[in-house]
Design a protein around this nucleic acid. Structure first.
Lengths: 159, 159
DNA sequence: CGCTAGTGGTTGACTCCTCAACCATAACAC
DNA sequence: GTGTTATGGTTGAGGAGTCAACCACTAGCG
């Protein structure tokens, strides 16, 4: 890499590389494990996780987008696939004829209930169980700082 | 989410969500910014970053794969595209007729030298500058623990 | 009302990545 | 040597996500 004005110091570079690498590898590993022992992708799992909350069950597409921080076209494609597999249903929204409500079907509930224990176990194995309670709090605090900064300084495209 | 045997506690859930969310959002933001102000994808940037190291300049495809922890087919597709754009060249390897050596071309060097300052600045803005030196060390240590665990316990597919 | 602007959602084209199949060459066994 | 296995790399099909264009409906303003 070329030398630049505000280049990263060794300490900064180490932190950045470790963070980037760890999150990438973790994502790859968990995706594969989830898919192998449940047939669900991470996207499937996230949608089902939201809808399977007892206080939810049905949710408009826009609210799902907001909850997942997904683009609406992504959700649309995703929902089409999950509908074809019988995991969820699309229903008209009585309050707004433009809107669509997504409902969890029994097969979808079964799918996430079967997938969740193994998935959580993998999250523990590769992440949670490596840290003390105090370290978990540190992780939460530091990462929330990143999220807040991103939210406070919206990207060019959103301004 | 259904109640499961070893479900996550509130503290565990907070750390896991913050980590997952922050790394995802950061990736999305940095990718977009990089593409907008340099025309390079993250994949382009990573390849160029490796090759532009003064001590490198040319590297066999297999070594590139190992350095980037990429699959060989991904590198092959990626290299084809970057070759078409004149950023790098493919050369035969005199030591092994099966092998291919990737060489950085002047246009590739120019591309990363132009892209790097702004990209590093964004990495600082969204990540590095949010933390004290001690916090950066903590981030490095904790994330390296994740990486080590993943490396020590290879996935089903690799065993 | 009637127009216009905004919102909710879908679609299709394109890019990126993975996986499995494949080809050529190299390394090893006998 | 010859046959077998392993390695380096490419290819094509298919899944997943983004973007821009579009349609239908709603809401706000005159």
């Amino acid at each position: 890499m070329p030398n630049e004005p505000r280049w990263l110091s060794a300490r900064e570079d180490r932190a950045w590389r470790a963070f980037k690498h760890a999150s990438y590898q973790l994502d790859v590993r968990l995706s594969r494990e989830l898919l192998q022992d449940s047939g669900l992708t991470q996207a499937d799992y996230e949608v089902l996780a939201v809808l399977s909350d007892p206080s939810v069950e049905r949710m408009s597409a826009q609210d799902l987008c907001a909850t997942l921080t997904w683009e609406k076209s992504r959700l649309s494609h995703q929902v089409r696939g999950m509908q074809k597999r019988g995991l969820i249903a699309r229903e008209p929204n009585p309050d707004d004829a433009r809107s669509v409500v997504v409902r969890l079907l029994p097969a979808g509930r079964r799918a996430i209930e079967e997938a969740a224990p193994a998935h959580v176990e993998h999250v523990r194995q590769h992440f949670i169980d490596l840290f003390s309670p105090a370290e978990l709090d540190t992780i939460a605090t530091l990462n929330e700082r990143v999220l807040r900064q991103l939210a406070d300084e919206p990207s060019e495209a959103e301004r």
